[in-house]
């Protein structure tokens, strides 16, 4: 079944995730070609609607779309009608009226992709909504994990850091557990969500205890303003308790993976040695991001017929 939108990981479920990851293998292959471009989405029009700054996610989507030969248009929020007071809904209706097949949206407010999906006919892809979801990040992370660990059933993954404010953490928890992994969230209490009811995860304040048991450690970006919000007394203290320091690097399993969604604060949540360690797959995550986003765009916008008839050729 072809979904119309990609809003959340929960919408996909295990089958949906596996379908996208399966498809991603083909696009990793496409990306490795001398001319990494296929005509799969020729004539399709995709709009980028990024209300929040994003470099890597937008570039990654843009690269994915180009490799699929889609046309793209960028709605630049900073220099647009939004500054003239246009509402989100009117902006979406305007873009929609130009004829787009998909809108890829990032917004600081949770739920915006759902609202847009109610307003317009095009497919909506959630590229991050507030603290809520970032499904393509979770898919690329899951793909990266699987490419090293194989089946995730029974694997143990620690997500460390500012979980409360992290859409990456929410989507990753959903994706990892959907594929059978066990997740432990490690953070000071102030950086955990106020309630963990219904969360399929262990919680720990003791990274040193968790570290030796994990197959992967996923470090979240520690935003510098959390210190001024009194969520942690000092960044030094945060690093001491929850950073992947050189000492902790030594305690990490030999085959355990080090992951980070970027951009990193070297020396805060991750020491430079860990970022550049052979166990680190951080740049691989970025590379896989393009292939995963090709899969998502192809799945939502390419017709099943094209797929079966070898739309990748």
């Amino acid at each position: 079944m072809t979904p119309k939108h990609l809003l959340s990981i929960d919408d996909l479920g295990r089958e949906g995730i596996e379908e996208i990851l399966g498809l991603t293998d083909s696009f990793v292959e496409v990306s490795a070609r001398r001319i990494p471009k296929v005509p799969a989405l020729r004539g399709k029009n995709i709009a980028w609607l990024f209300y929040e700054d994003s470099t890597r996610t937008r570039l990654s989507f843009e690269t994915a779309a180009k490799r699929l030969s889609a046309d793209t248009m960028n709605f630049s929020v900073g220099s647009s009608s939004v500054n003239k007071g246009e509402s989100l809904r009117d902006t979406c209706l305007t873009i929609s009226a130009m004829g787009v097949d998909a809108i890829v949206v990032r917004h600081r407010s949770a739920g915006v992709p759902w609202q847009i999906a109610n307003w317009i006919d095009a497919s909506v892809i959630n590229a991050g909504d507030g603290w809520h979801e970032h499904p393509t990040q979770a898919l690329l992370d899951t793909y990266t994990l699987r490419s090293h660990l194989g089946d995730l059933d029974g694997r143990h993954i620690a997500i460390v850091g500012d979980i409360k404010h992290s859409r990456v953490a929410r989507s990753n928890l959903a994706a990892f557990t959907a594929l059978g992994a066990e997740v432990t969230m490690v953070a000071p209490q102030t950086l955990l969500p106020p309630s963990l009811e219904g969360w399929n995860a262990n919680v720990s304040h003791d990274l040193d205890a968790v570290l030796p048991t994990v197959d992967a450690i996923y470090l979240l970006r520690m935003q510098l303003e959390r210190q001024t919000d009194a969520l942690v007394p000092t960044l030094r203290e945060y690093t001491d308790g929850y950073g992947l320091t050189t000492q902790r690097l030594a305690a990490l399993g030999e085959k355990a993976l080090i992951m980070h969604p970027g951009p990193m604060n070297r020396g805060v949540e991750i020491c430079p040695e860990a970022a550049d360690d052979p166990r680190s797959v951080i740049t691989e995550q970025v590379a896989n991001g393009v292939a995963v986003r090709m899969s998502v765009l192809f799945l939502l916008l390419g017709s099943g017929a094209e797929h079966e008839a070898g739309g990748l050729s």
Partner: peptide, 15 residues
């Protein structure tokens, strides 16, 4: 409301 649903939805809560 700050609680189970705000945590899940990633919406800042009012306790």
């Amino acid at each position: 409301h700050e609680g189970e649903w705000s945590s899940r939805l990633g919406i800042p809560g009012q306790p």
